[in-house]
Amino acid sequence: MAADVRAIIAGLGGVDNVIDIEPCITRLRTEVYDASKVDQAALRAAGVHGVMLAGNVVQVVVGPDADTIASDIEEIIG
């Protein structure tokens, strides 16, 4: 299942909650303002392989399309 970009943004707490997003070959390293707004179940439902939350850094494991997904997300959040 390909990950759903808009559902990933929603799972991260929406456009306004995302500070930064950086792809690393299999995962998105994202920094958020408010970690309590991150919905891990929603992220998993969006088709990601796994989610790791540490402080306000969320690692979303999306598989080898991380670069493409990150640039799609950046286009949406601007």
Binding site: T26, R27, H49, G50, M52, Q59, V61, G63, P64
Partner: peptide, 9 residues
């Protein structure tokens, strides 16, 4: 790194 040790990918 759990991404690898848990074989997430």
């Amino acid at each position: 790194d759990p991404v690898f040790s848990q074989a997430m990918v």
